[in-house]
Design a protein around this nucleic acid. Sequence first.
DNA 1: CACCTTTATGATAATTTTTCTCAATGACTC
DNA 2: GAGTCATTGAGAAAAATTATCATAAAGGTG
Lengths: 156, 156
Amino acid sequence: MTQDYDKRPDDLRIDNLKIDDLRRAFRRQGLRLTPQKVTVWRLFADSTKGLTLPEACRALQEYAIGQATVYRVVNSLCELGFLLHIHGPNGEHRYLAGHSGHVHHLICRTCGHVREVTDCDLSTLEKLLAAQTGFAVEGHHLEFYGQCPRCTPLPG
Amino acid sequence: MTQDYDKRPDDLRIDNLKIDDLRRAFRRQGLRLTPQKVTVWRLFADSTKGLTLPEACRALQEYAIGQATVYRVVNSLCELGFLLHIHGPNGEHRYLAGHSGHVHHLICRTCGHVREVTDCDLSTLEKLLAAQTGFAVEGHHLEFYGQCPRCTPLPG
DNA sequence: CACCTTTATGATAATTTTTCTCAATGACTC
DNA sequence: GAGTCATTGAGAAAAATTATCATAAAGGTG
């Protein structure tokens, strides 16, 4: 019998549609969806600032998920595009759930708060670069840094 | 007597003007310029793809520079803006000498070759974001990924 | 629903990367 | 040239990442 995914802890909510997306994506690679994978996904989906791998390992100890699993699952989720990597205030690698399609991030250097940025049209620039350099440009990674409204000192 | 910086190995060239820049930058922070720092800088200045910290440590063993020093100097060079961090084909953190002012990079996913990109005008976008989000946008990090001319399969 | 094949898991160990400590060295100022 | 104080490298320690392998279980099949 298939594992009952509804027995999840209340503090990690996720909609069932997303679970189906996850299952389909894993299946396409010949991989299986397991409760551990769902729990890992939920942890990231609920995080607004993203998590480092060690942070995720610590948080998931509560759910008895081993660190080897955390590393494996995070890698898979990245490859499947469910997680994106961003850089925290100290340059550390953090993983963040990508809720939309192609997005970028605005990261507060003080508190690490992250806001998604959806307007970005770099296609003109990419074409120009391709013409100038001969590279076949396949994509880009763009992050903005600054101070979020709560961390911005008031002017004056 | 001040150390003779001309006794450097022939395979790591650097112009003396840059050494003066380094000295001034370190001095401004109350730090001292040492032959080790210059050697570390030269290693990076000669690398076209950037180096990870462990790679740099291995390469600098030849010059009897301890790893603690490599980590410290790379950090300083980053803070002073002489080194930039980029992400290699496998997502690993690499440090690259910044030869110009504000630049971005076009990184080959196959061979890791890096080309600098100097045209970038994101100031309009930054202003728009600031207005939309309330963030005080201070900067950005932009990387393009693709295949360099030598790694691009010929069309057809 | 029970079976079966194959992937996934977690404990553990091993490896790699990063940080810390401290005595000795040496850069830079006067 | 002397003194001050940042710097260095060896080594230990801590932290992060990867590898191994016996056991558990997902998901297809009869």
